[in-house]
Design a protein around this nucleic acid. Structure first.
Lengths: 279, 279
DNA sequence: GAGTGGTCTAGACCACTGT
DNA sequence: CAGTGGTCTAGACCACTCC
């Protein structure tokens, strides 16, 4: 028995979602507060519980509700994101450290990947593998497909919770570093001074980093290892290191859950009064 | 009548999704190709069509399938993203142009927001409004809540398709630009030379930009205006302009669909041989 | 134990697409 | 027209949480 001809053309579950979303943004439903149960929503809107569930599923996917498993769905609190600084200042500092003693490098070495969490509270695991460049990887290096590259995957987890804090995979063409076998030794992790120092041992000087940032939707597997809630995208950062001869000598992919991290960077400009007459 | 005790503990619809995802990543299902219909999946997996639909919904949300509405669901082609360059080089160019004649500025003025699309093929609309700073906005400027700010929303759409190409909202505290009423004139859009030039007319010199990039899940409304498919996040860029006195003089939010845009930026480092002895 | 959401069924009707 | 997905119903059983 149908009550109304669905009045408009907007599906019922979307109308319920719109109503709830309005209540959330207006503050009528506060963060942490529970929304009405699916059964109540079904009664209020004269629909089946299945439709009510579809409505809350919409808001879950939008990241507005955090939910379920025996507990009522609640309004998600605004996430606090750790800034992930990728500014030239910091990269320059890393470059300057290349010629500093190892003790100093080791101390600050892994900051790159922890983004603020003390190294002592983390476990890290690295893995080296010699692989053949896929078409995608080869095109980034502008080298032929199938060329040998060293693949390094790196993962850090929180000691207490076991939660993953960072994950990245980087590639260096084997021919560029063949002269220094130490670069293939996993026991050196985390790399003191980062790959900038490692590359400097074979005479490669980095001129610039080129980074591309985009976002993707996590798979269910991603959600498990990151302990992510539904409705949270993954930030994907692809960095390339270009040396002073214009060659791409290193490429890395890293991902971060968008509810915990944000990419922060600074563009420094020159002063007007300092550049008079130049260029 | 139940056939098996659901063997493991993984829900059926997730197992179907996993199987399909594996077929997609392995190349067994090519981009553009149609996946089996929900009815067929239900028969193959001995489940109801409802469960089969949940399975394809999972892959839709991951952005791997596109489709529906009478047509069978198909494997989505890899998106081609337009790079959105936000490098210091480009910003510096903008800064240098501040002191160039208006004709030159006007020519290149709006590149900032089109990201590669010719200006002639777009419609743009700007809107000015004088509003009171919300707590969030005020905290970015480090000014008291309720201070007057000029809010400028800017939108560009493709002339043919009517699709939205860019959207942004920026804020400038009124007290910083009160001396130049031209800045409040909407007919000047698009701003020749961007806000850097506008601010220079009241004696403000930009020292640096600070940008934060993160990703959010679009609402159903967002999806409509951007013509986005499900499973595509939105990139969110918040830029702040800091002047040479350390004040935040401008703040803007911009969003881009993550399947069409990527943030690209370059970190330029100094040469070793050029910095000997300095610093 | 009562209430919650998560999974699943077996249907129904509709809008849309292709031929 | 037959086939597709999109919406919706009215139930069922389970795992979980809170009291």
């Amino acid at each position: 028995m149908h009550h109304e001809p669905t009045s408009g053309t907007v599906p019922v579950h979307l109308r319920i979602a719109d109503a709830l979303r309005a209540q959330i943004t207006s503050g009528e439903l506060q963060p942490g507060q529970a929304i009405p149960s699916t059964k109540v929503l079904a009664q209020d809107w004269h629909c089946s519980v299945g439709v009510a569930r579809m409505a809350v599923a919409v808001l879950m996917d939008e990241g507005r509700l955090s939910g379920g498993r025996g507990k009522p769905a609640t309004v998600r609190r605004a996430p606090t994101r750790r800034p992930l600084t990728l500014s030239s200042d910091w990269s320059q500092l890393q470059k300057d450290m290349v010629h500093r003693p190892e003790s100093e490098r080791r101390e600050r070495g892994a900051i790159e990947l922890t983004a603020g969490v003390p190294i002592s509270a983390t476990n890290s695991s690295a893995n080296y593998q010699q692989v053949l460049a896929t078409p995608e990887i080869a095109s980034e290096f502008d080298l032929p497909v199938g060329v040998e590259v060293v693949q390094r995957t790196y993962e850090m987890t929180d000691k207490e919770s076991g939660m993953r804090l960072s994950w990245s995979v980087s590639y260096i063409p084997l021919e560029y570093i063949r002269d220094n076998p130490a670069l293939l030794d996993e026991s050196n992790e985390p790399w003191p001074g980062g790959h900038q120092h490692q590359l400097s041992t074979v005479g490669i000087e980095i001129d610039r980093f080129v980074r591309k940032v985009t976002a993707i939707q996590p798979t269910t597997g991603d959600r498990q290892v990151w302990h992510m809630e539904p409705g949270v995208p993954l930030l994907h950062v692809r960095s390339k290191s270009v040396d002073i001869e214009g060659r791409v000598v290193e490429m890395s992919d890293a991902v971060y859950p968008a509810d915990r991290a944000e990419i922060l960077y600074v563009e420094q400009l020159k002063r007007w009064d300092l550049e008079r007459g130049q260029k």
